[in-house]
Simulated scan of single mutants.
Amino acid sequence: MDVAVSSTRQVGLGEETYARHLPGSGVGAVAHYLLDRREHERRQLAELGSLDDLAALDAMLELPEEADISRESVSGRVQRIVARLPESAVSQSEDRLRRLARHPVRVERITVAVRRSWTAALQRVLEFSQFAERVLVCTSSPTHEQVLEASYNGVGVALEGDDGNWVLEPDAFVVQQHSAARWAFAERVYALHLSCSN
């Protein structure tokens, strides 16, 4: 059965979008993201790279972004973790805290190329369900059953090529909640950005 190709929006994300291969064994994945230039420049000036401590990211989520908060208004655990962080991440006085750090990138999409195994590619792209919109890129038209499987999982399907064509547009990604895991993923992508930029 032939699968229809649609073109209600472009497959490409625009000139401001960067792409980095995500390390991992087996099926490769690519993160497409926008750099928060203000945060990037602030970190560069402060010589602050990526933040990879999950407990620290979780603690910082307890603090409002760029607003002073009373030290006593957060738990002792958060106070202890924040006390270890550099001033460029959290500004601290005797009784006030202010979170300066924020997500350095916004991951827009994860793409996985379908090469040998549709199942392996689908499993790989589903690993990123809580982080961004997900798309499988095929060298040839997928079967009707494969498109249904992708649709069930909210995964888009595009045909490989210069302009690309949608077989199935991905479900829009909606942030359900700001989590340390999501922030850590953004930091992981930012670390890749820094390693490729240096």
Rank of each mutant, 00 (worst) to 15 (best):
M1Q: 11
M1G: 14
D2H: 15
A4Y: 07
S6P: 01
S6I: 15
T8G: 06
G12K: 12
G12A: 13
G12C: 07
G14H: 10
E15R: 15
T17G: 02
H21W: 13
P23F: 05
G26E: 08
G28S: 14
H32P: 02
H32C: 06
L34C: 01
E39G: 00
E39H: 02
R42P: 14
R42L: 09
R43S: 08
L48K: 00
G49T: 10
L51D: 05
D52R: 14
A56W: 01
A56T: 03
D58H: 04
A59E: 02
L61A: 05
L61I: 07
L61H: 05
A67R: 15
D68M: 10
I69L: 15
S70C: 09
R71G: 00
E72F: 10
E72P: 06
S73I: 05
V74C: 07
V74P: 11
V74G: 03
S75H: 04
S75D: 08
G76V: 12
R77P: 00
V78H: 06
Q79R: 15
I81K: 06
A83H: 12
R84N: 12
S88C: 11
S91K: 13
S91L: 13
S91P: 01
Q92D: 00
E94M: 13
L97T: 00
L97D: 02
R98Q: 13
R99A: 09
R99W: 00
R102W: 08
R102S: 15
R106P: 06
R106E: 09
R106S: 11
R109I: 01
T111P: 03
A113N: 07
V114K: 03
R115W: 03
R124F: 07
V125P: 12
V125S: 09
E127K: 14
E127I: 04
E127P: 06
F128D: 00
F131I: 12
A132K: 06
E133T: 11
R134V: 10
R134L: 05
V137N: 05
C138L: 14
T139E: 14
S140Y: 11
T143F: 09
E145T: 11
E145I: 08
Q146E: 13
Q146P: 03
L148Y: 03
E149Q: 15
V155P: 05
V157C: 11
V157A: 08
A158W: 01
G161M: 10
D163Y: 04
G164Q: 01
L168S: 03
P170G: 04
P170M: 04
F173W: 08
H178V: 12
H178Q: 14
S179A: 09
R182I: 02
A184N: 13
F185S: 02
A186D: 15
E187W: 04
V189E: 00
A191K: 09
L192E: 06
L192M: 14
L194S: 06
S197Y: 01
